[in-house]
Design a protein around this nucleic acid. Sequence first.
DNA 1: GCATATATCTGACTTTAGTCAGATATCGTC
DNA 2: GACGATATCTGACTAAAGTCAGATATATGC
Lengths: 290, 290
Amino acid sequence: MLDRVSRVRRFNRAVTSAVGALDTSFLGRGRPLGAARVLNAIGHGRTDVGDIRDYLGLDSGLMSRLLRSLEDEGLMETTAHGDDARRRIAKLTAAGKREFNAYEAISNRQAKDFLAHHTQREALLAAMDLIASALGRDGTALHEMDPRSDEARYCLGEYYAELARRFKQGFDVKLSRDPDAKDMVRPRGSFIVAMSDGLPIGCVGLKGSSCEFAEIKRLWVAPSARGLGLGRRLMDAAEKAARELGIAVLRLDTNSALAEAGQLYRRSGWTEIPRFNDDPYPDLFFEKRL
Amino acid sequence: MLDRVSRVRRFNRAVTSAVGALDTSFLGRGRPLGAARVLNAIGHGRTDVGDIRDYLGLDSGLMSRLLRSLEDEGLMETTAHGDDARRRIAKLTAAGKREFNAYEAISNRQAKDFLAHHTQREALLAAMDLIASALGRDGTALHEMDPRSDEARYCLGEYYAELARRFKQGFDVKLSRDPDAKDMVRPRGSFIVAMSDGLPIGCVGLKGSSCEFAEIKRLWVAPSARGLGLGRRLMDAAEKAARELGIAVLRLDTNSALAEAGQLYRRSGWTEIPRFNDDPYPDLFFEKRL
DNA sequence: GCATATATCTGACTTTAGTCAGATATCGTC
DNA sequence: GACGATATCTGACTAAAGTCAGATATATGC
């Protein structure tokens, strides 16, 4: 009925008016939106004044005045940065924290009300994740993390669940060659998580070993973040880490049921090689010389 | 990893910054956003000044000044309303139409660029439809339409396609008792389409007949609009139309594969009755006395 | 015809956001 | 310690949005 462009524009219209309502709800506490945004940025852990300025895209003059108005209200204080006295650190006072919590409560209530009005909650949330990841693509950052961190374990859990869904015979980690966490931490290897505004949406592991090659393991991209080129970015980051660690040969194993993965490897300079391990799950093996 | 409320808020953040970018793109034509919004509202067919004011949520003084500024630019003219000379009708001049088209081109280009940057297009569009329908629920309007209109035929096509997917034996309209369009037009019956900002997202038919009962047919709600209570609204509208037409007994047939539909009927006062026709597809039959 | 309601317009005003030039203090480096 | 770079602040300004009290013209009901 509607062509694609019209559908995107219908979405834009729906969301524009919703965002307008969201903004005006923040006006209920008798403070202009600019000041409220600064207060919230500080409350969410941004303390460096320059960082807040960049994040909110404010002019330095305007920023300074907004900080002054929050200080006059007794909601925050600034102190000099320990290492560099030119930089200022913003910190909420007790009153500021109360006020920040009030804004948080408004946001949480709105989100809750929105969900409460719909019975199709999981579908709606999945759609929201998908769009948030697509819109936030430029903001997706890759972080080297410990594979035992909460973020990494969340990714691995999702990864195993997906393998279990996609392999005809299911998937049981215990039967697979599960890499030791230490092999995926520097200086032996690395583990990289893609974070999109607080949500982990992808990961990859670089497993160092005592033999002549290292392995790429656990490449996963959240369903809500596919089609954004994130798999390629993760692989590039893993290769970069491998080069930094002086690794010359990379190998990986995968399964032909994961067609996108195979395509990605072939398109980015990997060549198929014969089986090099006895893991029961993979049926495709690749190598890349750096 | 993130709880539901946090996921909704992540979506809100992603979308807020995207909408900001969308707004600033409209500034490129040297006109403040307010004036551009009014120009676009007129271009999209809103001619009544009061209507535009309500739609954009503007103060009457501000609205008046924005109209004046567009008039000074030679982009529009106002005339008195035929029936009520207090009301004013806004109309774009040739120059105004050109300017409106330029804004349309900006919006279309942005939508196209957005799609071009993603390979997962259908998933993304489905997510956008879902969210636009959810956000636009209050704006969803039910319209009585001819079952042969484009909107109705689109809905029926989607409905048949869904039956074909959900019935084990598939679905072929020709084998089913396809109601005559004339039986679903006043004064015999009615056909109602739910429109959400230009997109048909649901329908229901009321089929009058010469026997002692009328039938509810073709109740359909787009997958992107489920969980919003739209099925209930459509059924209520169909019952209202039936009462207006002096119909006392309603019947319908359905299939137990369509569990949501059966639930809806049971919860809204319908009682199961024995088979009353020889259509091969249904296996559940209901009646409701008005 | 007259009072009252309604739709729009005008003028005077405020608030918010944003811009820009320059002041002030501090940092890093030679 | 001088010098240029950097981070923040201050003052002076503008543009845009929004508010509010009337003015004007027209409609509606008695």
